[in-house]
Amino acid sequence: MSHSQQLYELLGDGSEINIVCHNNPDPDCLASALALGRIAADAGIDERSILYSGQISHQQNRAFVNLLDIDLQPFEAATVQNRQSDSLLAFVDHSIPGTNNTVPTDTDVDIVIDHHPAEDIDARFVDHRDELGAAATILTEYVRTLDIDLDTDLATALLIAIRSDTLDFLRGATTEEYAAAGHLHEHADPEMIRQLSNPSVSGGTLDAISTAIDNRRTDGAVLISHVGRTTERDALPQAVDYLVRLEGVQTAIVFGLVSEAIHISARSPDPRVHVGNVLHEAFDDVGSGGGHHDVAGGEIPLGIFADYTSDDAQVLDIIEQIITERLVAELNLSETTED
């Protein structure tokens, strides 16, 4: 029995489904959740919810939710802890309770569909393909195989998700991404794709990227920078995507203080560096970090510094020193030198 058939059979036993996105969901997670909801509806589930934690702050993500009118609800632990036996819990674009989500770690999960590197995934149904460039590629396969109605909004969402997670097929794209995109293209809305591909950029995001440029430090082909404190969490991946294009740079890592946590974003087209492993090894004892060999992220709770507000500049200096030292040690760099 194929993955799609196994999933459909499991959905047929449920009365409701809660589809949990990872923290601060991106287009790949949102489109995958939307597609799974459509498949669940076709299987006869009337009660369907898409839940998330964190913020939807990236300008593309906000436009994605607004233009496609995706019904999102804040995640609450009670929703999954007190559910009935025929109430299904699904993860898309992530896989482990408590890792990049606020789901209690002892929660039983029914469905996991993911493409990020992970170990010890435990669920009744698991489709984990870390060789793929997007979770939306898997959901597109399901939609095709199960002959689910592919309306314009769903096709547009899945196509944008694949393009976004692969940087328009320049990062981690496989033949499966190209095949999925080819199928979706004829059903998608070109004008909506244009709007979603070119959203406006906030002043805060631009300021954070500017700060990352000013604070960059390089050692050979490695660049490390920070944005200081910012309210624009999604400025970090945008900054690192920009800085990794700097001539001579093969690995770029940008971190910053957002609310009460340190966020980290990394990129590395260098086949000698696995940035997912770098962030995991450097910060697993104080937070979380991981991802693919070329794309990764991490989050570290601010901990003892969370209530220290009398001298924000000093806190930022301490954070910069500690995070940079850990990265330098894990990357086996001699020292970082400012450009």
Score class of each variant (00 low, 15 high):
residue 7 L to D: 06
residue 13 D to L: 13
residue 14 G to W: 15
residue 16 E to S: 15
residue 19 I to Q: 11
residue 24 N to T: 14
residue 29 C to N: 07
residue 34 L to Y: 15
residue 34 L to F: 15
residue 35 A to S: 11
residue 36 L to E: 03
residue 41 A to T: 11
residue 47 E to F: 07
residue 54 G to V: 03
residue 57 S to R: 09
residue 58 H to Y: 10
residue 62 R to F: 02
residue 65 V to D: 03
residue 65 V to K: 10
residue 66 N to V: 00
residue 75 F to P: 02
residue 78 A to L: 06
residue 79 T to G: 04
residue 79 T to E: 04
residue 80 V to M: 08
residue 84 Q to G: 15
residue 90 A to D: 01
residue 90 A to R: 00
residue 94 H to W: 10
residue 103 V to K: 03
residue 104 P to D: 11
residue 106 D to T: 05
residue 111 I to R: 02
residue 116 H to S: 06
residue 117 P to G: 07
residue 118 A to F: 10
residue 125 F to P: 00
residue 130 D to I: 00
residue 130 D to Y: 00
residue 133 G to K: 01
residue 133 G to H: 02
residue 135 A to V: 14
residue 136 A to L: 13
residue 136 A to C: 15
residue 138 I to W: 00
residue 138 I to S: 02
residue 140 T to G: 10
residue 140 T to V: 12
residue 145 T to M: 05
residue 145 T to K: 10
residue 146 L to E: 02
residue 146 L to Y: 01
residue 148 I to M: 03
residue 153 D to M: 06
residue 154 L to K: 07
residue 155 A to T: 09
residue 156 T to F: 10
residue 158 L to W: 06
residue 159 L to K: 08
residue 160 I to N: 05
residue 164 S to A: 12
residue 164 S to D: 08
residue 167 L to T: 04
residue 173 A to D: 09
residue 176 E to S: 14
residue 177 E to Y: 06
residue 185 H to M: 15
residue 185 H to F: 15
residue 189 D to L: 10
residue 189 D to I: 10
residue 197 S to M: 11
residue 197 S to I: 02
residue 204 G to T: 06
residue 204 G to W: 05
residue 209 I to K: 08
residue 210 S to Q: 10
residue 224 I to K: 01
residue 225 S to P: 12
residue 230 T to R: 05
residue 232 E to A: 15
residue 235 A to T: 05
residue 241 D to E: 15
residue 241 D to I: 11
residue 242 Y to A: 13
residue 246 L to I: 14
residue 248 G to D: 06
residue 257 L to A: 05
residue 258 V to E: 11
residue 270 D to E: 02
residue 271 P to G: 08
residue 271 P to F: 13
residue 273 V to Y: 01
residue 277 N to L: 15
residue 280 H to N: 14
residue 281 E to R: 14
residue 288 S to L: 04
residue 294 D to Y: 12
residue 300 I to N: 07
residue 301 P to Y: 09
residue 307 D to T: 12
residue 314 Q to G: 02
residue 321 Q to S: 13
residue 322 I to W: 09
residue 325 E to R: 13
residue 325 E to V: 01
residue 327 L to P: 07
residue 333 L to F: 10
residue 337 T to P: 00
